[in-house]
């Protein structure tokens, strides 16, 4: 008879909402598996699926302000990234700890990070809606998303429709 240890843990995702996590230790288990009970297939469930399938995207970045060859790569989790900025054919990830240069393309990041709250707001920016502190129009009537790190990103008028649709989908899925 195997040992069955139940460890109730609260899994904290990038949502403030908490999810109960039960861990069972079974020495006789032939095939390790994960069962997920959910009310609807929302982004956080897809993120768990990605983690279980080892498909959770992570990015390796080098500090943007240093010579690329001199510094070690840092692994960045999507939850750590405020926004991505594509400047001079280079992609940069802005995090709390600094700016990192990524070797991916903005389009591939957009595809990979859809379930992680990332939405395109201009030709060169992909923002993480979970990191937005405030969204408000400026005096010049441009709408800006402000982040915890004090940076602001403009939401381009051409991407307004996509942005609105993304928020609606995320809202529907985040029940």
């Amino acid at each position: 008879m195997g040992v069955r240890v139940c460890l109730p843990v609260y899994l904290e995702c990038n949502l403030k909402q908490r999810m109960k996590l039960n861990l069972f230790e079974d020495k006789n288990c032939k095939e390790e598996h994960v069962d997920v009970y959910f009310t609807n297939m929302r982004p956080v469930i897809r993120q768990i699926m990605d983690s279980v399938n080892s498909e959770r995207p992570s990015f390796s970045g080098r500090p943007a302000d240093e010579d690329l060859d001199d510094f070690e790569e840092t692994i960045l989790d999507p939850d750590d990234i405020y926004y991505l900025d594509f400047v001079d054919r280079k992609l940069f990830a802005y995090t709390k700890t600094g700016v990192f240069r990524l070797m991916n393309t903005l389009a591939s990041c957009e595809e990979m990070l859809w379930n992680y709250g990332f939405v395109r707001v201009s030709k060169s920016n992909l923002i993480n809606i979970y990191k937005i502190k405030q969204l408000r129009p400026d005096l010049n009537m441009k709408v800006y998303a402000s982040f915890d790190n004090g940076e602001r990103i403009c939401i381009n008028r051409s991407y307004k429709k996509t942005f609105n649709e993304y928020l609606k989908v995320m809202m529907r899925q985040t029940v």
Binding site: I132, L135, K168
Partner: peptide, 12 residues
């Protein structure tokens, strides 16, 4: 939009 973002962030 700001309100929707807050709701999404709070997961409700």
């Amino acid at each position: 939009q700001d309100r929707i973002i807050k709701d999404i962030q709070n997961g409700k």
